[in-house]
Design a protein around this nucleic acid. Structure first.
Length: 917
RNA sequence: GGGCGGUUAGCUCAGUUGGUUAGAGUACUUGCUUGACAUGCAAGGGGUCACAGGUUCGAGUCCUGUACCGCCCACCA
């Protein structure tokens, strides 16, 4: 016996993964005789190393892929990584900083060289780590969003949108991160709750003599505005009130002297002002606030920029110029205070926008950026959803997804960083020296900017060769949005037939698996671009899973120190355990809390599976089999029972896979394997395997092997390593069957067994009879404190038919209930016995001297009262006329049957109390 | 300010179209070197299903409201 007693995952997993790679089992080629099942990986950032979120996301995909392969599909799971624009540039900038340099010291070209060097060195970390998880990715297809195939797709997509007039350049108020020094799109800004302050500031009104005669003297000579950002007051160009606000009606049109600055600004009326908030009067800073920007546009207000791209005050800020925005705030408040213009300060909770990459407070700033018109694209995306072309699992995500699409504003796609796809827009510089070259298409330059997929050699307008490319790069999510088709070579040379076939064969992909945090950032945009460029949805299903949290429900983060490293878990418990723990807790629509306990449980399950196999393998060594066909074998009821249970679980699990309820697949296989197969069936087979009847032994062993093979296949998508290693072990012990047992379990087919026949259902009833008898006897033994080693005699008092049932199954009952024999006698007069009732039979255990009569009596009494209570509630139900009238007949009948059973039991318990008393 | 999800055993969670006196894992208690497994086996204690109403013969499950927790969205200064 060379099999160790416990399953040891380390070592096994590496060699199995190497075996899969060597056999090239992960790669897929178009094959028109088979249906494809395609998943493109949500490309992790090249900066990333595997965390629990990746582990969960990829385990779910791997389970789906592996299941579908067994189910007969040509599966293709495409790996890759995202260049991760800002995030990645930040990482390398930090490295430079440690060397005392910044990116401007290097210049664009040298800096990018440095970025690529870094990417070559560390960028594949995460893909390597996914191998440890067991992911069956087709590595021959690995893509990187910045490689030539994907970059070409980006340029092609951009150029097409540009030609359609959907891309435009404009000077607008955008979200600006003063730390990353770039614009951000609306969804790249996160909102953090903060208890800020609302400062009330007096703005003096310029007195106008003779304007309204005497009355004027009695009016307030100032307006009070409320603001959370006093530093922006330097850029105020108006004060606005609601037009219907009676308090201020008379003041509209009047002039105010802006404190600290001295600029004269007007009081204007605008609907955007909520008269119920603050004082009802709002300072208007068109250059630094989105609402104010709109108000300014309506009233033609000047935009005074007082905060610069670096977050410091500009020269327009006068004496505050050069100060950091928060430092300036302090100074301004001091100065206002000194001037007696600061009235009150109220605590004010509000949300502050922060950069999703560095958490710096975002500044709304005016700058020139490229935008994509998304109206038509998002309308088509909504249509696709409404037509049922894209389904969410769980469905509850569809509503917020559609709502988001419907309220979408144009997408700011330009970024002022260097790492990314440089926008393929070119400016013709071939203009008379008198006219300065312009980036914008405002008509001043001789030629309008143009987009081009290839690097242009001359201007398409004037033929000039002095051409400069736009320096901004694209939002990293622009390339991500193309991912489902760019990975298959969209926009690459169509003469390459292989590439063309791939796209046709694999697109649209089957399912997208992702966490909900990038539903808008990524999923919605893939749908828009898929419909735009491929005229076809990128995937039919979106499987959205929860976020991994720690055991207290907190998000895992480095700063909280509650991060669980999946690689540690793999080392300690094995990849299978990690996978099983994650899958079984991934309930649809809920976040996932993981603790060490869950991994221990999963590891134990792997061990259980291993040991069940070990039992079979060891017996196979002793009693080799040439075939495992059950034809002609005389199956007993336990065999039929386990076969039908196995068929049922394979069917149930199949259904759960189809509806992406992977947690249920895990629970179902666990329950079947442990509670049915191991706890009962294996115990049943010991009688035959260790007996002397060779034919019976062969039958039992054949059934065991059949069930084990099916269990391994059913569990394989969740726990690929242990199932593969056990498959291999099984195959080695069945040398005559190498044809039927492929080398790898990945090459087998998912079990599809017919539904149970009547005969099999009857055997299920027989087995449950055994289980019930054994269970009650065990309970009684425990309660009576009968030592485990002590054998007991079971005396049965029952009608002939029931008595026969006991006799037929006596081997199992005696063995599992630790009895030495079963005696049956209808006219039995028990003395000094413990008693249990099963169906219409009474089981007595005579144990003179061991049993405590008083104790047994009280046990029977409590048993009795339990059933009497139950019986009462059933009787009450049945004597309720409304119940009889309204409940379905089957329900009434059910209740009657239960009552009858309870009544029998009660009678027998009563009579036994009498005997004992 | 909207929207979504959660609240079931000490802990983590199941609970299908309403139908026994609500389950699992784990932890806890007790007993077991049972010819696969102590990463195990057997048994046990432990829950007013957040709260308040309602619908129904019958509610953990459906409806309304409340509380608390979490998430997403939103230009109220």
């Amino acid at each position: 016996m060379e099999l160790p007693k416990a399953y040891e995952s380390s070592g096994v997993e590496e060699s199995i993964y190497a075996f899969w790679l060597a056999k090239d089992l992960f790669s897929s080629r178009p094959d028109t005789t088979k249906k494809p099942f395609t998943i493109v990986i949500p490309p992790p950032n090249v900066t990333g190393s595997l965390h629990m979120g990746h582990a969960l996301n990829n385990t779910l995909q791997d389970a789906l892929i592996r299941y579908k392969r067994l189910a007969g599909f040509n599966v293709c799971w495409v790996p890759g990584a995202d260049h991760g624009g800002i995030a990645t540039q930040n990482v390398v900038e930090k490295l430079l900083l440690a060397e005392g340099k910044n990116k401007n010291d290097l210049g664009r070209e040298k800096f990018l060289e440095r970025m690529w060097k870094w990417r070559e060195a560390t960028g594949d970390t995460i893909l390597e780590q996914l191998k440890k998880l067991g992911c069956a990715l087709d590595f021959s297809r690995t893509r990187f969003t910045l490689d030539e195939v994907c970059s070409r797709a980006v340029r092609e997509a951009f150029a097409r949108l540009f030609e359609k007039g959907l891309i435009y350049r404009g000077k607008r108020l955008v979200n600006w991160c003063p730390r990353c020094m770039t614009a951000l799109s609306d969804i790249e800004v996160e909102h953090e709750e903060e208890i800020g302050k609302l400062w009330h500031i007096k703005y003096p009104i310029v007195k106008v003599e003779r304007q309204k005669g005497r009355k004027l003297e009695r009016e307030n000579d100032f307006v009070v505005v409320a603001t959370t950002r006093p530093e922006t007051m330097l850029g105020d160009t108006a004060v606005a009130v609601n037009p219907s606000d009676e308090r201020y009606k008379k003041l509209v049109g009047r002039t105010i002297t802006l404190p600290l600055v001295g600029r004269e600004i007007k009081i204007i009326a605008d609907e955007a002002v909520d008269s119920a908030f603050g004082t009802g009067a709002v300072k208007v800073t068109p250059a630094h606030d989105p609402t104010d920007f709109d108000i300014g546009a309506r009233h033609n207000l000047e935009k005074v920029v007082v905060i610069g791209f670096d977050g410091k005050m500009t020269p327009s800020a006068g004496k505050y110029a050069g100060l950091d925005r928060y430092h300036a705030r302090k100074e301004i408040l001091n100065d206002l205070e000194d001037a007696g213009l600061l009235l009150e300060t109220v605590e004010h909770p509000h949300a502050v926008g922060v950069c999703y990459r560095c958490s710096t407070t975002v500044e709304p700033l005016i700058s020139e950026q490229w935008f994509l018109k998304v109206g038509e694209m998002s309308r088509r995306a909504v249509e696709a959803s409404r037509a049922g072309k894209i389904k969410f699992y769980p469905a509850s995500w569809e509503k917020p997804y559609i709502a988001w699409l419907e309220n979408l504003r144009d997408w700011c796609i330009s970024r002022q960083i260097w790492w990314g796809h440089r926008i393929p827009v070119y400016y013709c510089k071939n203009v008379p020296a008198t006219v300065a070259p312009q980036k914008s298409s405002d008509g001043k330059s001789a030629c309008p900017p143009f987009a081009s997929v290839e690097t242009p050699v001359k201007c398409p307008h004037c033929g000039g060769s002095k051409i400069e490319q736009e320096t901004d790069v694209l939002d990293t999510w622009f390339s991500s949005a193309l991912w489902p088709f760019s990975v298959f070579g969209w926009a690459t040379d169509t003469k390459d037939v292989g590439v063309k076939n791939d796209l046709e064969y694999y697109y649209p992909t089957s399912v997208l698996v992702t966490g909900h945090e990038i539903l808008y950032l990524w999923v919605a945009r893939m749908v828009q671009f898929g419909l735009e460029f491929m005229c076809e949805r990128p995937f039919s299903d979106v499987y959205i899973h929860g976020i991994v949290r720690d055991k207290h429900g907190k998000k895992m983060s480095k700063s909280l120190g509650n991060v669980i490293d999946p690689l540690d878990i793999i080392k300690k418990y094995g990849a299978d355990a990690l996978r099983f723990a994650m899958i079984s807790s991934a309930t649809a629509g809920r976040d996932i809390q993981l603790s060490d306990d869950s991994f221990v449980g999963a590891r134990n399950f792997a061990n259980k599976l291993y040991n069940a196999s070990r039992y079979i393998l060891m017996n196979l060594e002793k009693y080799p089999l040439d075939d495992i066909s059950l034809d002609g074998e005389s199956l007993e009821e336990t065999d039929k029972w386990i076969l039908s249970e196995c068929a049922a679980v394979s069917r149930i699990v199949r259904g759960h896979y189809e509806s992406y309820e992977l947690d249920k697949t895990a629970r179902a296989v666990y329950d079947f394997t442990w509670n049915k197969f191991c706890d009962w069936y294996i115990e049943f087979t010991k009688e035959r395997l260790y007996g002397i009847d060779a034919a019976a032994r062969r039958t039992a062993l054949k059934v065991l092997v059949n069930i084990l093979a099916d269990i391994l296949k059913i569990i394989h998508p969740i726990m690929p390593f242990v199932t593969e290693s056990l498959w291999r072990a099984l195959r080695e012990r069945l040398p005559a069957l190498k044809g039927e047992f492929p080398e790898s379990i990945m090459e087998t087919a998912y079990p599809s067994l017919p539904a149970s026949s009547e005969e099999y259902l009857k055997s299920a009833a027989d087995v449950s009879f055994i289980v019930e008898v054994v269970t009650v006897v065990r309970q009684l033994r425990e309660e009576m404190k009968i030592p485990a080693a002590q054998k007991i005699t079971l005396q049965i008092r029952a009608e002939e038919k029931t008595a026969a049932r006991f006799a037929e199954r006596s081997v199992y009952i005696t063995k599992l209930a630790r009895a030495d024999k079963i005696e049956s006698n209808l006219s039995l007069e028990p003395r000094a016995c413990a008693c249990v009732v099963v169906k219409d039979a009474e089981i007595f255990i005579p144990l003179e001297g061991i049993i405590d009569i008083a104790k047994e009596n009280s046990r029977l009494a409590s048993e009795l009262s339990k059933f009497e209570g139950f019986s009462r509630s059933l009787s009450a139900k049945l004597s309720n006329e409304k119940f009889l009238a309204k409940a379905p007949a089957s329900e009434v009948e059910n209740t009657r049957a239960k009552l009858a059973e309870a009544t029998t039991k009660i009678e027998k318990l009563k009579s036994n109390i009498k005997y004992l008393g």
